[in-house]
Nucleic acid binder design. Structure first.
Length: 331
DNA sequence: ACACCTCTTTCACATACTAT
DNA sequence: ATAGTATGTGAAAGAGGTGT
């Protein structure tokens, strides 16, 4: 009952709170709710999605301040104290004494945990290591065979982040097909997508309409549900011969072709107009940071696509037409 | 109860290559 | 030049821990 109250209060800040498990809710209840209220008083909404430049800078500032207050030497010691067994206890005490959590999340309207993740990513020397070499891949396969999915252990042995290793392993663990899709593969993919889509509809139906008389045959599906947040791991196992990323990309291509009735909308004169519309729309948004773009909105304004398709288009446009784009900010 | 941590799944950004 | 495909990697957000 208590949890329901908290859930209700959180809903104001996190619209999708319904889908979050009790365990996560309980964790947000303590500190975050109070922080969210404080931000609300200042008229600041809770943020999601990728961190903006500004937020990243704020994290760095918060870390530096904390280091200077406590006298801890480096951000790595602060955020990865288990790598320094002798100093671990001292660091921990300093953290509690000077309210590390509060200080780290200062000025950033997000759940504490997510800010903490972000900070660890920024300051992990095992992050940003670039491409895996052939030897590294072999090593990874070997280590996984002996240690299982103990990524932390493997991480210490290979000087790569846990996440990077976990994902890389799932990429190289088994052989898969590549190149154009065969007819059977496409059929399998379509079947798999249909299946998960139906399952999903059944779930929402039983949730909102308990009476079972809604088994009418027209399946109306919201546009975004066709491509957002599909269970790709499940689809991968059903297709069998392709990785989930290949499945996802193929599905997106099929979907886009259907949505545009086979027309190649970015070709020729019309294509040029499409690009102009896209740029205009982005300009009108007046957002400061590229991470603040609402792609769903942009998409619906210029045509009918899965948002990832337009995002990819914009990327290509940017890279091919804007000199020195890497050094430029979005605004 | 709370501070802190790990693993998994999915999405985003970036780039390369080939066929048309 | 564009579309399709493949794939490198960083990132977000979820579930579910441990230790004090």
């Amino acid at each position: 009952a208590d949890l329901d109250v908290i859930r209700l209060e959180l809903e104001e800040f996190i619209p999708h709170v319904k889908n979050i498990s009790d365990i996560s809710i309980r964790k947000m209840a303590g500190r975050d709710l109070a922080r969210f209220r404080k931000f609300k008083k200042q008229g600041i909404a809770v943020k999601f999605g990728r961190f903006t430049q500004k937020e990243n800078k704020q994290i760095q500032k918060n870390i530096e301040e904390f280091l200077s207050v406590t006298g801890i030497e480096s951000a790595e010691k602060l955020l990865f104290s288990h790598r320094y067994p002798e100093e671990k206890r001292t660091i921990q005490r300093l953290k509690t004494k000077h309210q590390f959590c509060e200080k780290l999340s200062e000025g950033i309207p997000r759940p504490w945990r997510l800010i903490y993740y972000r900070a660890r990513k920024i300051y992990d020397p095992n992050n940003y290591k670039g491409k895996y070499s052939e030897e590294e891949k072999q090593k990874l396969l070997r280590y996984q065979a002996t240690h299982g999915n103990d990524w932390k252990k493997i991480s210490e042995m290979m000087a790569r982040s846990n996440q990077s290793l976990a994902r890389k392993y799932s990429q190289i663990k088994s052989a898969i097909n590549s190149g154009p899709w065969s007819k059977e593969e496409v059929q399998k993919l379509l079947h798999a997508v249909e299946k998960v889509m139906k399952k999903r509809i059944e779930e929402t139906e039983t949730k909102f309409i308990p009476s079972s008389e809604t088994s009418s045959k027209h399946l109306l599906i919201e546009r975004e549900k066709l491509y957002q947040n599909l269970p790709w791991a499940e689809i991968e196992t059903q297709v069998g011969t392709r990785q989930w990323r290949q499945c996802k990309q193929k599905w997106l291509t099929i979907l886009r072709t259907k949505m545009n009735k086979g027309k190649k909308v970015f070709r020729g004169k019309e294509g040029l107009q499409m690009k102009i519309n896209l740029i205009k729309r982005l300009y009108e948004l007046e957002v400061e940071d590229a991470n603040d773009i609402n792609w769903t909105e942009v998409c619906s304004a210029i045509g009918d696509f899965p948002s990832a398709y337009v995002q990819a288009k914009f990327y290509k446009l940017k890279v091919s037409c804007v000199p020195l784009w890497r050094r430029k900010t979005f605004s």
